[in-house]
Simulated assay, not measured.
Amino acid sequence: MEAITILLAEDEALLLLDFEQTLNDAGFSVLAVTSGKRALEILTDTEIFIQAIVTDIRLKDYPDGWEIARVAREMDPEMPIVYVSGDSGPDWASRGVPNSIMLEKPFAMAQLVTAVAQLLNDRPVSAK
């Protein structure tokens, strides 16, 4: 069985490495990027099949995590989205996409794996 591919967008290098390692250890294939622009390039590449997204909200450049998730959901209305943020959690209810999960930094790495797995498991069978 092929590993599920997760797009990870995080501009803090140490966190990016920690998140990527945690997701790899859980059996996921991870495409890690440090910019919103690169995340959108990967999302819109028809050769790459992304099955879930983990994104920081505040990235150094445009687009931010809110926009990455919005574009992903335009392409796939059931795309699992996990937001991670140190300060944007209160905006999740109004700016986040439906059926997403917000993890506020700092969090236990197990929470990241659990959030991704939960959203993947909740995804309708037709969308898998």
Score class of each variant (00 low, 15 high):
Glu2Gly: 10
Ala3His: 14
Thr5Tyr: 08
Leu8Lys: 05
Glu10Met: 05
Glu12Tyr: 06
Ala13Ile: 00
Asp18Gln: 08
Phe19Met: 09
Phe19Ala: 07
Gln21Arg: 11
Thr22Gly: 08
Ala26Trp: 11
Ser29Lys: 12
Val33Gln: 03
Gly36Ile: 02
Ala39Asn: 06
Thr44His: 13
Asp45Thr: 04
Asp45Asn: 13
Asp45Met: 07
Gln51Cys: 05
Gln51Glu: 14
Ala52Gln: 04
Leu59Ser: 06
Lys60Phe: 04
Trp66Leu: 04
Val71Cys: 12
Val71Ala: 13
Ala72Lys: 02
Arg73Leu: 08
Pro77Asn: 05
Tyr83Glu: 04
Ser85Lys: 11
Asp87Ser: 13
Asp87Ile: 12
Pro90Phe: 11
Pro90Ser: 09
Asp91Gly: 08
Asp91Ala: 13
Ala93Asp: 06
Val97Met: 00
Asn99Tyr: 01
Ser100Ala: 08
Ile101Val: 15
Met102Trp: 10
Glu104Thr: 15
Glu104Leu: 14
Lys105Asn: 08
Lys105Pro: 09
Phe107Ile: 10
Phe107Thr: 05
Met109Tyr: 09
Ala110Phe: 11
Leu112Ile: 13
Leu112Asp: 09
Leu112Tyr: 13
Ala117Val: 12
Gln118Ala: 15
Leu120Asp: 08
Asn121Cys: 14
Arg123Leu: 01
Val125Ser: 03
Ser126Arg: 03
Ala127Asn: 07
Lys128Glu: 13
Lys128Met: 14
